[in-house]
Structures are given as C-alpha cells and as structure tokens.
Amino acid sequence: MILELKQLNKSFDKPILKDINLDIEHGEIVSILGKSGSGKSTLLNIIAGFEKADSGSLQINDQVIFDKKRNREPQDRNIGFVFQNYALFPHLTVEKNILFGLKKTKENKKKKREVVQELLEMVDLVGYERRYPHELSGGEQQRISIARVLATDPDLILLDEPFSSVDTLLKAEIERDLLAIIKKSNKTAIFVTHDPKEAMAISDKIAFLEDGEIMQYGKPKDIYHQPKSKQVASFFGIANFIGEKCYRLSQIEMKKSGGMHKVRLEESIFRGEYHELHVKVIVDEEEYPFILFDYGDFHKESEFYISLTER
C-alpha cells in the first residue's frame, strides 16, 4: 500500500471533508473526481501537506506522515505536486527548474546533467534546457513541471486539474502524453479533476467525491455500470432509471417494432451526429423518463420500442 488515508476530516466554516478513507496501491493512477466545492482540491493539498487535516491519519509506504501527533512538512513527504498552472519558477531556465529539487542531493554536476537529459527525453523536450518558462507553450510547461517532479524520484505524484487550462482540441493528445510519461516512470499518481470522461480515460481507479464524502471508489467501468446511487450514475453520463435500476445507452436497443417496452417521444433536439430524444418509457402502465441518442430516424416517429439488456 503506497498511500493510506484513514478517517480524514477537515472543516473551515463548514465541513469540507468527512471521514475520508482511501487506499492506493503502488503503480496505480487514481482520479479524485468531483464538482467544484466537493473538497477534492483540499484533499490533494492535505495529502501534499500544504493544508492540515483536523483529524485522521495519513500513511505513505507504511510510514505515518500525519496523525494526531505528527505532521510532516511538505518537503519531508517525498510527494511530487504538479500544479494547475504548472508553477514553474519564472526566473530559472528549464534545466534549473528541473534541477531545483535535485540540488540537495550531493551528486556531481555530470550526473545531474545526465538526469536532466534523461527526463527531457522522457517528456520529449530535448534541447529546451536553456529556455525560460515564459518561452514555452502550456503543454510544454506542463511536461517540464512533470519532469521537475520526477527528478526528485517521489513516491507519489499529485496532479491538480492538469488539463483545466488546456485547449479542448489538444486535450486528448496531452492526456495521452501525460499518461504515457507517468506509466513510463512507473509512478503512482493521483489526479484531481471535475471531468468524468477525463477521469475514466486516464485512471485505474476513481474516487468520486461529493460534499466532502467519497460516494464511490472503484474501477471506471465498475463505477460507470454499477453506480451506487442515482447521483453517481448521472454524473458519469446519461443514466436512465426504471425504479432503482440504471440503464446506460449501450444497454438500450431502439426498435421500430417488436421491442420489450413501448416508448412515446416527447422532445427531439438536433445535436449534429445524432438527435437527443427525450421520451417516456411505459413499463407496467408506469411512465419513466429516458434520454436516448438517435443516430437513425427515430426522431420522426411519435412512438417506437426499446429492448433492454441487463448487466
């Protein structure tokens, strides 16, 4: 177990985090997912040591770094932090930024040079040594800030909304690059994000946080298909309910005739590739509101049928 959080609590004027328990295995990439104000950034800051929890404990590599008696300073936790705005030191070159955390180790200059080269290769920015942060694009700055963190060989890397200031068009590419770098380095990483699609794409596990509580913790597919509550279900995508049972779009087949349930169309919205249909599904004379994506011409019908597959 690389990271173990037990019963963490934190409040300012009102409770921000309530009894947070979280275990993370070595090499895992975990997302802390939540809306703004859910407490996810506070949780990340507490793990890093920038903020102090009111109670609970925190262990890294089976060593207690925070509990009632102890509170290790950030500099003594060996945790790397990649900031939302990268926080590169504007007065230092790329090379000096990367070397910043390496300074205290007493390795010789040549060795340090090699480390910088290795890291620049890893983040694919060889030849950028003498540049200053303001001469780099956002994506490049981010990769340098990861290289800077990797230089100190941390036990754990924390990333605060790493894609929030990235252009939507470049997001997928940068996501992939970042993931590749972290996988290559064989490190454990925690992402904070508000975007469920991003979380599902990059993480081995997702901790879904709402109002300071972890509502569900598990693999992306498990959370997506077996959400513990309607809230969780709706947050991860279109969720249609019959009673307590959640049906994702992939479980619904639309048919002109001969389906399991009759459907009445109420509203159709043109979305380009598809029509978003707001319908009522009639099951045992009860009506249930569903949202369906129509890639064909169901939007022209006033009534049709659906079949549901169970998981």
């Binding site: 500099q75 932090f81 963190v149």
Partner: peptide, 8 residues
Amino acid sequence: RASRSLGF
C-alpha cells in the same frame, strides 16, 4: 508550494 514539495 512547488519549492517545498521539491524538498525545501
């Protein structure tokens, strides 16, 4: 914070 998490 960056500097501190880098060990200073």
